[in-house]
Design a protein around this nucleic acid. Sequence first.
DNA 1: TAGATTGTTAATCGATTAACAATC
DNA 2: TAGATTGTTAATCGATTAACAATC
Lengths: 218, 218
Amino acid sequence: MPNTKPLSISRQSLQRMPLYLEHLKKLRADGSSHVSAAFLAAELGLHPVQVRKDLAAVSKVDGNPRVGFALEGLIEDMAEFLGCKNAHEAVVAGVGNLGRALLSYKNFDRYGLSIIAGFDSDPAIIGTTVHDKEIFNVSRLSELCGRFAVHIGIITAPAQFAQDICDAMVLGGIKAIWNFAPVHLNIPDDVIITNENLAASFAALSSRLRQRGEGLGV
Amino acid sequence: MPNTKPLSISRQSLQRMPLYLEHLKKLRADGSSHVSAAFLAAELGLHPVQVRKDLAAVSKVDGNPRVGFALEGLIEDMAEFLGCKNAHEAVVAGVGNLGRALLSYKNFDRYGLSIIAGFDSDPAIIGTTVHDKEIFNVSRLSELCGRFAVHIGIITAPAQFAQDICDAMVLGGIKAIWNFAPVHLNIPDDVIITNENLAASFAALSSRLRQRGEGLGV
DNA sequence: TAGATTGTTAATCGATTAACAATC
DNA sequence: TAGATTGTTAATCGATTAACAATC
């Protein structure tokens, strides 16, 4: 059984997938039935070959010279690939402004993702709901992760609590962590992690701006 | 005048810089005066050579065999590099949950970053303040960007408004955009952009988890 | 048919990692 | 001194881009 598809898709490709899906849906809504890689690439500011490779990685839909790819099949395969059908659930620990924003974020639905509960240590918000999701005491984090059979944990708590929360999540059976706390977390090898550091992103953008400004002698 | 330092630092390096700064400060607070690249690398889960290169790119502090780098100078240079001294200001358009979270985010201070105002179209919140920052009518976006002499714009509005907001920002003199709307924005060449797609990140993490699960036959 | 568009192989580019001599 | 640690050059790795024959 020859394996034509690469076993794993690059992280960068993976990040682009939701953008394709979004744009393909838009094109379909506009009444198109086909799309060429070149067109899609131009719209999204990507390289045409990159687009073709990305599409080939997740879909068996063959492109057609002159007409491009059939939108319908592409959308179906892309949705399938991204797991939009079998929903993926997560919990979020740290219900400050950011946690609250994620609990209320509507775009997750489109990819079959949902945050089903929040955890915090503040008695004032434990027991309340945000966007219809209940907020539990963080002390019950590992217990409830197990009970909910959730495998994705999101950390939006202050840095000093992040490692403890992380440990509790791992104990509760969490296999993937989306970490917004600006610290390096120690995790077992079988748990995957994505670090999302907003301050670092902002600072990096600001530095790029300054570098460019200097380069131009401004 | 030979140019020893590379003109530009890679995007990835740039993203790591705030993490170094954070960790270096922590070490200093713990009473250390020096740190070795190997130690720092282990703490942050990076490669030692990578750390040395990164440090060398922003600091003239020479490492010392046996003792490592002097913390004090390193922190100073890193802070200088990241522009923590001359504060950088931004405005945010779209004061929903996410915009609100960014307006209230405390970690930005540490890098001399601040969001000075918000913009929205909802009459109910125009004129109110969030974390002491006033919310203006989005119709005044370009006017006020110019008046405030702000060069960084953050877009946290729904996707369908993003391009218009972006255009208004560019018109107002914005030179760097941090875009949270899940769409590709068309901008002039002299404006830099960082796209932050939360749904895409979440979806990518979820896909990685699923891929791994399949690989292990779970 | 002619030409737009695909899919694939090879070249390029950039970042990370390995190797190692220099040095405090 | 001996050995930990640096700084740098070369090798590796991975992703993007270029080139081009195949095809509807």
